[in-house]
Design a protein around this nucleic acid. Structure first.
Length: 878
RNA sequence: GCCCCUCUGGCGGAACUGGUAGACGCGCUGGAUUCAAAAUCCAGUUCCUUUACGGGAGUGCCGGUUCGAUUCCGGCGGGGGGCACCA
C-alpha cells in the first residue's frame, strides 16, 4: 500500500552547477585574499600537513590527484579547527628523465624541467588546493642546492660523510652508481638494466652510525603504518651473534685464523666446513698463486647478478685445501672453502657451515660431499637430517646430541644469548651486533643533480669548497651527445684552483643521489628563502610534519633517508627534531580496467562500454571494434589504462574529481577508476547545488534568521541528524576515514532532500533546513571547496567557508533520551524494545520480560539467564 | 624460502574497544514526471523458502572460546605485499 503513495516530485528550477565558471571564480577570490598564505609567527597552534612532492615528469597523473586531495582535506579541515596550517608544494626536480629528454629531444634539462613545472603547477592550481604557493621551490633551484651543499659540508665536518673505494652497483644503461636500496632483483630501479659490480671511489653518508637509533625510533612512530615500520625494521636488520676465530692448522700468507660471525652459535658442534667470500682477503691472497681459484673468484661474481644465477642460486664452492681446528673437538679439523653464497660485506665475510641445521649449508654440503652432523633433535623426533635441515623455532626446545663435556650450548633466543656469554668466558669469541643496513652511497655520475662541493688537489687531497664560494653551480653549456657524465668532459668547469693552495685542482664531478634532495625538503619549506638550510628555531616550531601522505613505494628509501637526515641535521645544529614525520599515511593506487584490441592496448578515453550487467561489451569509440576487457591494473603508459586528470576536470570540474577520489574506497586501498563512479560523484555535486537553490527559493521573503523557540518532531530529527553528521565527519577526517565521511554526507543529503520534499515551509522548518544545509556545506568544504563556497554564498553568507571556523555542534542534540535495544533469544535477534537511555539493568529486564512479543517468544520455556548490556543489547537464554 | 597483510551482496565498501551484519555509493528492477528521452524524484534490491505474515541460512573453509564472534584463538585454502644466498 505505502508504495502507492507518491510524494509529488518537487519541481526544481535550479540551474545546473557549472564548474567551468564557478571553480575559477573562487580560486581567484582565494588567491587575491592570500587565504592560504601561512605566516611563520602566529599565535594559533601549528599543524604541518605534507604530501610527497612530485617529480616534474610533464603532467600530473591521477595518483597525484588522489594524494593531494587527501592532504588538502586535512589542511582545510585543520585550518577550520583553528590551526595555523602549513601546506606547501615543491618539486623533486633533479634526476635522470631530464637528461634522457635532453638526449632525445635536444632540450636542456633545466628548460625541460622548468617547463614541466609550469604545466604541472597550473594543473595543481586547477584542483583548488589550499597550498601556500609563496613557499614553492624546486630542488634544482640553485638557492636550494646551495643549502644542500652547505649541509654536505657540515656533515663532512662532523664525520657523517666519507669517501671510500667500494664495490658498487653499476647501472650500465644509466651509467651511474645505484644504492643497494635502488637495486631491485639485481636490476636498476629506474632503467631495469642488470646491475654490474664495480670498484669506485664513492661518497657515502654514514647512515649506519644511526642504525640502532633508527631502529629504536620506530617504536615511537605510533602514527605510522605497522607495515612500514616493519619494513624498515627488516631493512635495518639487527641481529646479535658471536664473532669467533677458527685457527688454521698452518699459518699462510700471514693468516693464522679465519674469523667468522654466526647468529646460531648453538649449532657450533655440528660445524663441518668453513666458507669464505670470494672477495675475502684470504681468498684473494690464495688466488694470487692459484690460477684456478682466481678464475673461480672472478667467475662467480660475473654470473653473480645474472638472471640465471639469481634463479638457480646454485651453491658453488672451491676447496682451498686449508684446514682449521674445530674449537670444540681438538682432534677434528674443518676444510676451508671459497663459496659464492658468502657476502663480503656482511659479518666477517666468512661463516662456519652447519649443514644439519641450515638449509643453505645443507645444500652446499650435499653438493660437495661434506659431512652432515646432527647437533640436536626435536624432543619427539630423532630422525637424522636428510634433505631438509632441522631449523627449530626460536621458542622450540631441542635435545642435544654429540655435545662434548663441559660445553654449554643452548637453543632458543635465551639459550643463544647464554651460549654467547659462555663462549666469551671460554675465550672462543665475542658477542657482537650486526646490522644489514649499509652506508648510503650518494655519488652519481650524472649532470642533472646537486654538485658535490669538494675539489681534488694533487697536493692537498680532497678539499671542501669554502662555504662562501657556494653554490657550486652546474654549468649551463653542456652536451649530451656522448654517454657518460658531461661534467667530466667540461674542462672549463671542472678545472679550478685548489681552495687551499691555489694550485691546479679538479672539481668533484659526481653529483648527489636525488634521494638526498628529498631527504630534507620538508625542513626547507619552513623557511624556503633563508640563506642557511633552515632557521633552527622556525624549523623546530613547525617540525615534525604532523601528517605526511604518500605512496607506500617510499616505505624504505625516502623515509629512512629522511629519518637519517633529521638526525644528521640535528647533530649539525640545523634543527632539533629526530623524527621528521610524526604521522605517516600511505595511500593506495588508482587502478583501471585494461582494454585490448587487435592492434594492442586501447586507452579508456577511446572505449565505449555497453551491454548488460552480466555481459559488458567494450567497443572502440571510432572503429567500433569489439575489445577484450582485461584485468584491473595500476595505471601505466604501457597498458594505456590511463585517464588524464585534465580531461576529468574539464568535463566534470575539480570538485567531482576530488569527491570521487575520496568516495567508496578506504584511502589506504587501491581505488578503481570507473566512468560510472565519476558520474555518480558528479551527480552528488549537482544535487547539493540543486538543494541549495531549492532551499533558497523556498525561503520566504520575511524569513527571520533568529533561532525558533521550538521545532516540530521532524525538524528536531533533522537538526539532530545534522549535528551528529558534522560531529562524526570531524572524527572521520581526524582518522583519515574519508570514505566514511563521504557516506555520512550522502546520508545527510538524503535527509535534507526528504525533509524539503515534505515540509510545508514554516519558518521553523526553513530554519532547520538552512542549518542542516549549512552543516552539510561545512562538512563538505574540505573535500569540494568550490561548490561549497558557491552554495554558501547563495545562502546569503558574507563570509567564506575557506576561512570559517568549524561550527561547534550542540552536544544536547547528539544523544536521544531513549535507546532502541535489540532483543536476542539464545543469541538470535527476535525483536527490539525502546527504553530510556539511563534505565538500570533491572528496569530493562523488567520491561523486556513484560513485553508481549517477548513473552510470546519465550512462552513455555524457562528463562535461565538474562544478559543486559546497557545501551547495547538484551540476550535471553532459555 | 622467511616475514607481513587481506578475504563481508552483482560491485566498491560500512559495522568505534565481542553486542541489530550489509550503512553509503555504483549497478539493477519497478513506478512517477515527460509527446518521448535525458535529467530528476519515489520504492525495492544478501541468499533460500512463503501469495502474504513469517521461517531458515549467511562475513573464504573447518574447529574452538563466549549468553553472544565479521571482530578473539588454532588449523586449512585463495589473493596481495615486503625481504631474499644476511651466516
Amino acid at each position: 500500500m505505502t508504495a502507492d503513495i507518491q510524494t509529488p516530485a518537487r519541481k526544481s528550477k535550479a540551474e545546473r552547477y557549472n564548474p567551468q565558471t564557478v571553480e575559477p571564480h573562487w580560486r581567484e577570490k582565494w588567491d587575491e585574499a592570500n587565504v592560504f598564505v601561512t605566516p611563520n609567527d602566529d599565535s594559533r597552534p601549528k599543524y604541518y600537513v605534507l604530501e610527497m612532492f612530485p617529480y616534474p615528469s610533464g603532467r600530473i597523473h591521477i595518483g597525484h590527484v588522489r594524494n593531494y586531495t587527501m592532504g588538502d582535506v586535512v589542511a582545510r579541515y585543520k585550518r577550520a579547527r583553528g590551526f595555523n596550517v602549513l601546506h606547501p608544494m615543491g618539486w623533486d626536480a633533479f634526476g635522470m628523465p631530464a637528461e634522457n629528454a635532453a638526449m632525445q629531444n635536444k632540450v636542456h634539462p633545466r628548460n625541460w624541467t622548468y617547463q614541466n613545472i609550469a604545466t604541472m603547477r597550473g594543473q595543481l592550481k586547477n584542483m583548488g588546493l589550499a597550498i601556500d604557493w609563496t613557499r614553492e621551490f624546486a630542488t634544482c633551484d640553485p638557492e636550494y642546492y646551495h643549502q644542500q651543499q652547505s649541509l654536505f659540508l657540515d656533515f663532512l665536518e662532523v664525520g657523517l660523510v666519507d669517501r671510500r673505494v667500494a664495490r658498487v652497483n653499476w647501472d650500465p644503461v644509466d651509467q651511474t652508481v645505484l644504492a643497494n636500496e635502488q637495486v631491485i632483483d639485481g636490476r636498476g630501479w629506474r632503467s631495469g638494466a642488470l646491475v654490474e659490480q664495480r670498484e669506485l671511489a664513492q661518497w657515502v653518508f654514514k647512515i649506519t652510525d644511526y642504525a640502532q637509533e633508527l631502529l629504536d625510533g620506530l617504536d615511537e612512530l605510533v602514527r605510522w603504518p605497522d607495515k612500514v615500520r616493519l619494513m624498515q625494521r627488516n631493512w635495518i636488520g639487527k641481529s646479535r651473534g658471536l664473532r669467533m676465530q677458527f685457527s688454521l692448522e698452518a699459518p699462510i700468507h700471514g693468516f693464522e685464523a679465519v674469523e667468522v660471525y654466526t647468529t646460531r652459535p648453538d649449532t657450533l658442534a655440528g660445524a663441518s666446513f668453513i666458507a669464505i667470500a670470494p672477495e675475502h682477503p684470504l681468498s684473494q691472497a690464495l688466488a694470487a698463486d692459484n690460477k684456478q681459484l682466481a678464475n673461480f673468484n672472478v667467475d662467480v661474481r660475473r654470473t653473480g647478478t645474472s638472471e640465471e644465477a639469481l634463479e638457480k642460486a646454485e651453491k658453488r664452492g672451491f676447496d682451498t685445501g686449508l684446514k682449521v681446528k674445530h674449537p670444540l673437538y681438538e682432534d677434528q679439523t674443518l676444510p676451508v672453502w671459497v663459496a659464492n653464497f658468502i657476502l663480503m660485506d656482511y659479518g666477517t665475510g666468512a661463516v662456519f657451515g652447519c649443514p644439519a641445521h641450515d638449509q643453505r649449508d645443507l645444500d652446499f654440503a650435499r653438493g660437495h660431499d661434506l659431512p652432515v652432523t646432527d647437533t640436536f633433535f626435536a624432543l619427539d623426533d630423532d630422525t637424522p637430517v636428510a634433505n631438509e635441515a632441522f631449523v627449530p623455532a626460536k621458542t622450540e626446545k631441542v635435545r642435544y646430541v654429540n655435545q662434548p663435556a663441559g660445553v654449554n650450548i643452548a637453543s632458543g633466543q635465551e639459550g643463544i644469548d647464554a651460549t654467547i656469554d659462555w663462549a666469551e668466558t671460554k675465550g672462543l669469541g665475542k658477542g657482537e651486533v650486526q646490522f644489514r643496513l649499509r652506508d648510503w652511497g650518494v655519488s652519481r655520475q650524472r649532470y642533472w643533480g646537486c654538485p658535490i662541493p669538494v675539489v681534488h688537489c694533487d697536493t692537498c687531497g680532497v678539499v671542501p669548497v669554502p662555504k662562501e664560494d657556494l653554490p657550486v653551480k652546474l654549468p649551463e653549456d653542456v652536451s649530451f651527445e656522448e654517454p657518460g657524465n658531461p661534467l667530466d668532459r667540461h674542462a672549463a668547469w671542472n678545472q679550478v684552483p685548489c681552495p687551499k693552495c691555489s694550485g691546479p685542482a679538479r672539481r668533484e664531478t659526481d653529483t648527489m643521489d636525488t634521494f638526498v634532495d628529498s631527504s630534507w625538503y620538508f625542513a626547507r619549506f619552513t623557511t624556503p628563502k633563508a640563506d642557511t638550510p633552515t632557521v633552527p628555531g622556525v624549523a623546530d616550531d613547525w617540525l615534525p610534519v604532523n601528517q605526511y601522505i604518500g605512496g607506500v613505494e617510499h616505505a624504505i628509501l625516502h623515509l629512512l633517508y629522511s629519518r637519517f637526515f633529521a638526525r644528521a641535521m640535528t647533530k649539525t645544529g640545523h634543527m632539533s627534531v629526530n623524527e621528521p614525520f610524526e604521522g605517516l599515511f600511505t595511500q593506495g593506487m588508482v587502478v583501471h580496467e585494461t582494454y585490448k584490441g587487435k592492434d594492442g592496448w586501447i586507452e579508456p578515453a577511446k572505449v565505449l562500454i555497453d551491454g548488460s550487467d552480466e555481459v559488458r561489451i567494450a567497443r572502440h569509440l571510432d572503429t567500433g571494434e569489439v575489445l577484450e576487457i582485461g584485468s584491473i591494473e595500476k595505471m601505466s603508459k604501457s597498458k594505456k589504462n590511463v585517464v588524464d586528470p585534465d580531461d576529468i576536470m574539464a568535463t566534470y570540474g575539480a570538485d567531482t574529481a576530488r569527491w570521487f577520489m575520496l568516495s567508496d574506497s578506504p584511502p589506504d586501498r587501491d581505488v578503481i577508476w570507473t566512468e560510472a563512479g565519476v558520474e555518480g560523484a558528479h551527480r552528488h555535486i549537482q544535487r547539493v547545488w540543486r538543494l541549495t537553490q531549492d532551499i533558497v527559493d523556498a525561503t520566504p521573503t520575511d524569513f527571520t534568521d533568529e533561532k525558533p523557540a521550538r521545532f516540530s518532531d521532524d525538524a528536531l530529527a533533522l537538526r539532530q541528524s545534522a549535528h551528529r553528521m558534522l560531529d562524526a565527519v570531524a572524527q572521520d577526517i581526524e582518522r583519515l576515514g574519508f570514505n566514511r565521511a563521504v557516506a555520512r554526507i550522502y546520508d545527510a543529503t538524503n535527509a535534507i532532500g526528504r525533509f524539503l520534499a515534505k515540509t510545508s515551509g514554516t519558518n521553523e522548518d526553513l530554519w532547520a533546513l538552512r542549518e542542516a544545509l549549512a552543516f552539510l556545506l561545512e562538512a563538505m568544504q574540505p573535500m569540494t571547496p568550490h561548490l561549497c563556497e558557491a552554495c554558501w554564498e547563495a545562502l546569503g553568507h558574507a563570509d567564506w567557508l575557506a576561512t570559517k571556523p568549524w561550527t561547534k555542534v550542540d552536544r544536547s542534540l547528539l544523544d536521544d533520551d531513549t535507546v532502541l535495544l535489540p532483543i536476542q533469544v539464545n543469541g538470535k535477534k527476535r525483536g527490539t524494545v525502546t527504553v530510556p537511555k539511563d534505565a538500570s539493568k533491572e528496569d530493562v529486564e523488567t520491561m523486556v520480560l513484560g513485553d508481549a512479543d517477548v513473552q510470546a517468544q519465550i512462552a513455555g520455556q524457562t528463562v535461565k539467564r538474562i544478559i543486559v548490556v546497557p545501551g547495547r543489547i538484551v540476550n535471553i537464554v532459555v
